[in-house]
């Protein structure tokens, strides 16, 4: 038997290049290329982004929502209000849903074990896996905003730095929920109830289609249990009224606080679930 130590040429340190490489691998190769290969899905997704925008545009006229008091709509028109709401509601629910869906499909394809066998840490896998959902939904938000401005006549007065900060904080604060949803799927291996729940819950409670003030006072606190509510306040302010950092400080800080709680919680839950699947031997079970 050879007494020399074995070669260790397979082991590479993490660095900026590896972060860039993994970003490319997770977002472009495993994210975009796989997603875009399902052409019918791409077409239906595009339609799915735009149909609610036109639906609520027609409904708002029919139900007289256009006559709502501008003060209750953060100084905007109702069309501008719901366009921003719809643009970023999908941003959050899909960010949460896509990550859970990714874990589920990796379980079904049998690739989950190989991904978690690699030296890339599970927390990093979750982070990189979130990026494609984030980019896809930034695209959706952009498409909806372009249609809102170009077709529905929404007028934007943008404070770009505050808007960018609000988008980043909304993404970060929502990703903790995404990690929790991913842990839930890894554990239960059942569909995507978390994504579905958030889609319905946020539409009703987060001030997507109507102001939170319109909800009965007894359940209004539920609106402030999700970061989207704060995010939409800051986004509408910075996109439609050029709201300053000082004017949006409260919403932005609440998102930071939300992220500080949900991200560690989501990572801890995912780690706990992963260990449990290694104990039960159910990581690749579906």
């Amino acid at each position: 038997m050879d007494a020399d130590p074995p070669r260790l040429s397979g082991i590479r340190p993490e660095g900026i290049r590896s972060v860039a490489r993994k970003t490319y691998l997770f977002t472009y190769l495993r994210g975009w290329k796989v997603w875009a290969s399902y052409r019918a899905q791409v077409a239906l997704t595009l339609v799915g982004w735009l149909v609610p925008v036109f639906l609520y545009f027609v409904l708002s006229d029919f139900l007289g929502a256009g006559a709502l008091d501008a003060a209750s709509l953060q100084g905007a028109t109702y069309v501008a209000f719901f366009v921003v709401g719809l643009a970023f509601q999908g941003f959050v629910t899909n960010l949460i849903g896509l990550l859970a869906q990714r874990i589920r499909s990796e379980q079904m394809m049998g690739t989950l074990e190989l991904v978690f066998l690699s030296p890339t840490r599970p927390g990093s896998v979750l982070f990189y896996s979130s990026l494609f959902g984030l980019l896809l939904n930034l695209l959706a938000a952009l498409v909806i905003l372009v249609v809102g401005v170009g077709v529905l006549g929404v007028h934007l007065v943008v404070n770009a730095p505050v808007f960018a900060l609000a988008v980043v904080l909304l993404a970060v604060s929502s990703s903790g929920l995404g990690f929790i949803a991913a842990a839930f799927i890894l554990w239960t291996k059942q569909g995507n109830p978390v994504g579905l729940f958030f889609s319905i819950f946020t539409q009703f409670f987060a001030g997507v289609l109507f102001p939170v003030a319109f909800l009965p006072a007894s359940i209004r606190w539920l609106s402030y249990s999700i970061p989207l509510t704060f995010g939409l306040e800051a986004l509408r302010s910075s996109l439609l009224a050029g709201g300053s950092l000082a004017a949006n400080g409260g919403s932005l800080l609440r998102m930071v606080a939300y992220a500080a709680v949900t991200i560690p919680l989501g990572l801890a839950l995912f780690h706990w679930t992963l260990v449990r699947t290694k104990e039960d031997g159910t990581m690749a079970t579906y």
Partner: peptide, 8 residues
């Protein structure tokens, strides 16, 4: 590329 990239 994807899987080997996970090993940097």
């Amino acid at each position: 590329r994807f899987f080997c990239g996970l090993y940097n």
